[in-house]
Amino acid sequence: MLVLLPPSETKALGGSGAPLDLDLLSYPELNPVRGKLVDALVDLAGDVPVSLAALGLSERQAGEVERNAELRRSPTLPALARYTGVLYDALGLGDFTKVEKARAFARLAVVSALFGVVRGGDPIPAYRLSGGSVLPAVGPLGAVWRPVLEPVLAGADGFVVDLRSSPYTSLARIPGAAVVRVVTEDAKGRRNAVSHFNKAHKGRLARALVTSRAEPADLKGLIKVAAKAGLRIDATGPAAADLIVLSS
């Protein structure tokens, strides 16, 4: 099973790992594009105003540009420790046992604008680049990633659970992946997509899939594991499901 998570805009700073080495990342066939984007982001950081505009940042966020400038020299952390925010808080990597952490590194992957896709334990530095960004030297990231990322993800072994958000689903289509949507359901059974708490519920589902010794091989298995964790998932198609949250 491979569970695909979105990245986060916020990143943990620092780290104890050696500086970025693309050869240490999973999916080495993505390294030519990774190298191209890292170079473009570092070069862009030489012009702070242009960087802020391209990355959609304010002047108060100039520190993000400084981090991009240090991409090749700054320390690294495992991807699941680097990304922060609501989804990763709900995942709770810091609470995992040694066995659960190893399982998280094996089962979870993050689809990102800079690295395409990395496994949970891959060592990456802090950076700032969103899926919807357009780098002046590169252009829209979807056009850059789709030709190389789609074959990699389409070739993933086993059951793929897609928890990505829309800016990252646009980087690659994955035929056959189980796409999970977070919805509310009222007393009349009407469902609506959740926006505000979407990430937290996806984080809880990812946690359930890591803490379970059982490894789902299909949508039926996913629903069973989720139910044991107190999460209700209904299949809505052969490769689609709703994670249901009761509305107040």
Rank of each mutant, 00 (worst) to 15 (best):
L52H: 08
F105D: 07
L24Y: 03
R72D: 05
E29N: 05
G85V: 05
L44E: 08
A102V: 08
A109D: 04
L71M: 15
D95G: 10
R72K: 15
P6R: 00
P32Y: 10
Y27P: 09
P32D: 05
E64S: 11
V110K: 00
P19E: 02
L25D: 01
F105N: 01
K98A: 13
A90W: 03
L87G: 02
L41R: 03
A12I: 12
Y83Q: 02
R60P: 00
T84D: 07
V110Q: 00
R82C: 01
L108K: 01
F96K: 08
E9D: 13
S74L: 01
L77H: 03
E59K: 13
E29G: 14
S26V: 09
T76Y: 05
A106S: 15
V50F: 04
L52I: 11
D89L: 06
G85M: 01
R34F: 12
K101P: 00
R103W: 06
A81Q: 11
G15K: 04
D43N: 14
S112H: 06
K36F: 09
S16L: 10
D43P: 07
V38Q: 03
K11C: 08
R34G: 07
L52G: 08
G46V: 13
T97L: 05
L13Y: 09
A102H: 11
D21F: 10
L30R: 02
S26G: 15
A104G: 06
R107H: 12
E9H: 04
P6D: 00
R73L: 11
D21G: 13
V86A: 13
A18F: 02
R82F: 02
L57M: 12
G56S: 07
V86C: 06
Y27A: 15
A12M: 12
A18N: 10
A45N: 05
V48A: 07
L91P: 03
E9K: 10
V65K: 00
K11W: 11
G94Q: 11
G94Y: 03
L93Y: 09
A90Y: 02
K11M: 10
E29T: 15
V65M: 00
R73E: 12
V50T: 15
R107M: 12
S112N: 08
D47W: 11
D95A: 15
V65Q: 00
S51V: 01
V48I: 14
T97F: 06
T97C: 04
G63S: 14
L108C: 06
A102N: 13
